[in-house]
């Protein structure tokens, strides 16, 4: 029973229908909200992958972990971390410029972020190639399968992010700060920060873990 059934109403003055189109819906907020939901699904994918990592590491026992420590270069990964975080920082400055409405500022920030992203990718690919050439491949055992899957899945996200930034540069050049461009820039920020967060987990679990033990 709805409580308001009992309230006294004046039919003449009750507003039954709204005027205007979207009736207070916030288009930008809706777009960003949906993107957060998407990020949640991606977080679940990573959660499942890290769970698999836990299971397969347990399976492999300590031998694989010490192998991990001997083959994965934590110092190189630290270098990767700095580059990726610098890229995120550059993108952050682009967003500061967006608040000021400066197209040049946004463009410079994104270009720097893109270049750093490409450098990151280059470094990760180099690391992987080095490992592959030494015969450390995902096909070796279950533990290495999940380690490489995690690293490569993350790198694929960086590829998508770099592509997205290039697209945004073009759209910004063509349209300026239309609502489409703005919400995409905001969503890209969420995406890019998220990849940095995931990298922290990767760094800890893949590159550092063997060292600690």
């Amino acid at each position: 029973m709805s409580a308001s059934t009992n309230t006294r109403m004046q039919p003449g003055s009750t507003v039954l229908w709204e005027k205007g189109d979207a009736a207070g819906h916030d288009a930008l907020g809706t777009r960003t909200f949906g993107f957060w939901l998407y990020m949640l699904t991606d977080a679940m994918v990573y959660a499942a992958l890290f769970a698999a990592f836990g299971v397969l590491a347990h399976n492999a026992g300590l031998t694989s972990k010490s192998m991990l420590a001997s083959v994965f270069d934590a110092q190189a990964a630290y270098r990767d971390t700095i580059v990726l975080f610098a890229s995120v920082l550059a993108y952050g400055y682009a967003m500061v410029a967006l608040k000021k409405g400066s197209r040049t500022g946004v463009a410079i920030g994104i270009i720097v972020a893109t270049i750093l992203g490409v450098i990151f990718l280059n470094m990760v690919t180099g690391d992987l190639e080095h490992l592959f050439s030494q015969g450390v491949v995902p096909q070796l055992n279950g533990f290495l399968s999940i380690v490489f899957t995690l690293v490569i899945y993350h790198a694929l996200h960086i590829v998508v992010g770099v592509l997205w930034m290039l697209v945004m540069l073009m759209q910004m050049g063509r349209d300026g700060f239309t609502s489409n461009v703005v919400y995409r820039l905001i969503n890209l920020r969420i995406f890019w920060h998220f990849q940095a967060v995931i990298w922290v987990f990767l760094f800890v679990f893949v590159y550092l873990q063997g060292k600690v033990i």
Binding site: N59, N141, G142, S145, F148
Partner: peptide, 11 residues
Amino acid sequence: THFYTAGQGGN
């Protein structure tokens, strides 16, 4: 790869 295989560290 060896995620679910019977041997080689799969589960």
